[in-house]
Nucleic acid binder design. Sequence first.
DNA 1: TTGAAAGCGCTAACAG
DNA 2: CTGTTAGCGCTTTCAA
Lengths: 353, 353
Amino acid sequence: MVTIADVARHAGVSISTVSYVLSGKRSISADTERKVRDSIHDLGYQPNAGARALASSKSNVLALVVPLRSDMNLPVLMQFATGVVTAARAHEHDVLLLTQDEGVAGLRRVAGTALTDAIIVMDVEQRDPRIDVLRRLHQPSVLIGVPEEPSGLACVDLDFAAAGGECVDHLCDLGHRSLGFIGAPTPVYERGTSFARRTLAGFQSAAERRGVAAASVACDPSYAGVRDALAELRAKTPDLTGVIVHNEDALAPLLDIVQAEGSAIPDDLSIVAICPDQHAQNLPVPVSAVTIPTEEIARNAVEMVMHALDSGMDAEVRLLSPELHIRASSGPAPVSAPREANAASPDTDQARP
Amino acid sequence: MVTIADVARHAGVSISTVSYVLSGKRSISADTERKVRDSIHDLGYQPNAGARALASSKSNVLALVVPLRSDMNLPVLMQFATGVVTAARAHEHDVLLLTQDEGVAGLRRVAGTALTDAIIVMDVEQRDPRIDVLRRLHQPSVLIGVPEEPSGLACVDLDFAAAGGECVDHLCDLGHRSLGFIGAPTPVYERGTSFARRTLAGFQSAAERRGVAAASVACDPSYAGVRDALAELRAKTPDLTGVIVHNEDALAPLLDIVQAEGSAIPDDLSIVAICPDQHAQNLPVPVSAVTIPTEEIARNAVEMVMHALDSGMDAEVRLLSPELHIRASSGPAPVSAPREANAASPDTDQARP
DNA sequence: TTGAAAGCGCTAACAG
DNA sequence: CTGTTAGCGCTTTCAA
């Protein structure tokens, strides 16, 4: 193994000079710097991470806590994770993977042993048992998501309430007067998952503000689940003309079901989603959607962590503004309510073009 | 921060005694051990990871390289990752996340700086540029997947060739004489992804051995993609009665499409999949499937790494035997070819019950 | 602009 | 069975 002493000897300088060339923490003559860099290159020197961590009290590693529940949306999760890794690498940091099942003990372990410098937690719930621990930890942390009581914590997320509102406004502006909301599976709400509840709340208050009829349902991401959800919405608001979907997995089945029953999108039914842009684009009908800017959220999380690391933590809650991309799935409300009989007699009408 | 010296002082013993209590590397009197453990507990001592790594030349961290391509199957990926973390934790190790886009440089970096003790690589391709680097690295590594030339490397995977064969045998035993194979998206084969090719080869040679008609298609995981794939298979083998699916995302659409055209599963068409068991179970029709034992593969990978770490690396290729779980989607072949006209006139027959 | 040297907290000989 | 101590490779004063 090549050590810093080998480099120093090879370059004919002291150990500290090599160290300072690497860290840039004091000025070095151009000549010395060149000699040192050449030696580093010639010898293939790579500084030892453990020694560095011990001497500097910085591991240059971030912990990332990912949920492993299967009802979470995997693609979104994956995008967050790779976004965090990429952003961390841009700041010379690596990422240690913690699964949620180690729970609070995992947080205490990595912080207590100084394995990591800071912690990023995904999929935060409204009343999350981990946030108390995080507050007490002598290590900065950033949550992706916003708990009920975020005081003293740094959080980033999409402004899901505004996102829900923006979808409502878009549909209302198109003349829709009766809206439905297809949400995540029931357990997600029962757990109090922050983003799911905030979106729903945003939908409801915007609908109220605009004075339109509105109903919402949780939705299992299976065909049957989506069929049931749509039927339930129609039962609650018989002249439904616009649906907002905050459930990626429900989107493809929904389009298929609507098409199979002979309804046209957006002529009979407008659909707006809240999901990653790429997913909305690649459906059979390109779907109008509020983007979930996973990569941007991840980058923000890492930047907040980096800031906390060298300027002290501040308990900012950063909510990114939603951006609606209008595509083919949303259009003007039909002139007359298109399917008054539908909720009552689902089996008529099948032969429609 | 509490150090080992604090613990030693508090317990009235030497530093090394504390260290040996922790490592178990020499015998300690029951009395001393109790005193030390009490002090550790009272002071809340946690050993410093950097100091440990420096002194012992072991970081107790494994690198895990995950692919970030979106055409990879996310649930499977996630299961591997959590499986590796869980298994690693059971061996007192943590997991550092590397994304594939850092490529070979990431491997060199973590090994060169001694950030990690060993490397686990997922999604290995047949001729993977990383394997040469891994061979040269002074750090053990295990591949999940098998490259074309695995000599000198440790690999674990499901025996995908045998899995393909087992599906063929199952269908042939049920009297099917004309089989189709719906595979991964085209790019997966073009990249030379190891498991995809091995499965296909296993399918083909088994079909030949059993003397049955066989055709295969790559398949995009969209509705249209699956529709096309099925049509292509039927064009190639007009009296198709059994389909083997090695493409998780195609499964749900396939069931839906087959049902929509009025065919019964398994009466008209038998379906067998190669995918994680949980996924096969939760479809509208429970699907007969060869399990992809992600958790077991992950555990094996970690165990091989651990073995390499304390007994030296051996270049074993460990292929796990496939296990077929028979469910409702596969049954005896229909007595007469059920839909001779189908490939030619897809629009007839729609009114069938 | 550079060098010498004192730790950082722990492991593992070595000595008893 | 236990204690003393020399490093591990680096960062960062302190001194020049």
